[in-house]
Design a protein around this nucleic acid. Structure first.
Lengths: 252, 252
DNA sequence: ATCACACATTGACTTAGGTCAAACGGGGGC
DNA sequence: GCCCCCGTTTGACCTAAGTCAATGTGTGAT
């Protein structure tokens, strides 16, 4: 289920398709190698490991190389935590920590996961020399803002069915963009985590997945999801074609 | 209700307490005057004027000097718009536009409002010379991310009562920080706009405001709000004292 | 291989808040 | 000054989704 990775040697960033995907649009080879020099050793983490904690001093951004991570705000009870986001290969974490110089949430690993660590002060220093890097960082922060405001709209205006459809459609897009199948993937999060993230009850997720399957929209077996009608799923998520195109263009 | 402002002359930024509050923490006088030079003429807008539209090409960030602005994602129907945020004096708009170089939402003025315009390319250029400026910009973006994730948690985990309490408590904090009263202010948005923002029905807002008043928590008459028990309001919003302190510290 | 436990499903019932409808009231336009 | 219209309030009713409870099921530990 998880690809086998060579963890013995430090992976050079140029062999890591992710960094170029994420950061270096517009950077030349020399600039990329400058960037490589500041990347700290790849870290390998296992299910339930904590990458960072709320209030911990901020030093670094992280990029998911393989695996997946959830971020959440803790609540008074264990089950009153609020999941803020799921992070898949090629995605950045830690932007929330810049403001107060400490992380605003916990980040916990959902499955065996490799991350790159980017010390932020070195990154900003370097971005003085490389204007495009600064620009790219601003873009990544900005994307996070846009994504979260779309999520606000989802939670405020959409019913359970549309939320789950949007969630699955979103995962599909993100997997596809990293070269995985858009229609056949494994969820790294439990039903409970999905329901928490979407502001629904576990039972609702369970019933909806069942219904989606009955309707021939998807095939679901435990955490294995196959999307049979991606177009219908997008329609159900309330993405008109125009929105979809715009999103795909921007995410590409 | 609105202070009288001298709109005949361009307001120098140093006379504008806002810029120093918002941007220039840690900037010296020379740097501030560099910054001043790139600020475009203050613009004066009136109720319902559009500051920018979704998909419009991005050139500038804006700061609210006086008045207030809402941002929203348009929906297919007029009433299916989703309000993303309200912006008060001293607050920045436009960060969402960096990613795609076009605004992700509409920004509309709620009352007579003055804004400063900061051309973004000049701002980033300047921030190569002034590291602290770059840092400050990153912080502002980051704050937006944290605020939005708190809002996600609010919408997902809180009931109507807690949402409205949090909304009022939040306004109170923001007014106070700009030197206005924390317990006596006017809402620049309608009940409908509040309900839209909080993901509730107008009727629910109306009923809750009535109930809060009956309970002696607030005095409300049309858009005039007086908070009689700020502590109880914060408690109702689910802000434990610790969270409150941390928030105040960070927002100061 | 077996057990135990956490995750997942399914059904029955409850409820917070939405929807619909009707009445009210204040401020801007004439 | 009067009227109209939009925003607001209030009441009656409805429904989507939550809660509670019971039952299944795959996985990892022993």
């Amino acid at each position: 289920m998880n690809p086998v990775i060579d963890f013995n040697s430090k992976l050079a960033c140029k062999s890591c398709s992710l960094l170029s995907l994420c950061l270096s649009t517009g950077l030349n080879a020399a600039q990329i190698s400058q960037l490589e020099r500041i990347v700290k050793r790849t870290r390998l983490l296992h299910r339930n490991d904590i990458l960072f904690r709320q209030d911990e001093t901020f030093h670094s951004l992280f990029i998911v190389k393989t695996g997946s991570i959830k971020t959440f705000l803790p609540g008074p009870e264990t089950d009153s935590e609020q999941i803020i986001g799921f992070y898949l290969p090629g995605e950045f974490l830690g932007f929330d920590a810049i403001q107060e110089q400490s992380y605003s949430c916990h980040a916990q690993v959902l499955e065996t996961t490799a991350v790159c660590e980017l010390p932020f002060d070195q990154l900003t220093e370097l971005s003085h020399e490389i204007p495009d890097l600064q620009q790219q960082l601003f873009r990544l922060l900005s994307k996070e803002i846009v994504d979260e405001s779309r999520m606000l709209a989802l939670l405020n205006r959409k019913h359970a069915e549309e939320r789950l459809a949007a969630f699955l459609a979103g995962l599909s897009c993100r997997f596809q963009r990293r070269g995985f199948s858009a229609t056949d993937f494994y969820l790294s999060m439990s039903r409970g985590e999905i329901s928490n993230y979407l502001g629904l009850a576990v039972e609702t997720i369970s019933r909806l997945l069942g219904r989606f399957q009955d309707e021939g929209l998807i095939r679901v077996e435990r955490r294995h999801i196959q999307i049979l009608h991606l177009d219908r799923l997008h329609a159900m998520a309330g993405n008109d074609t125009r929105t979809q195109k715009r999103k795909q263009a921007s995410e590409g």
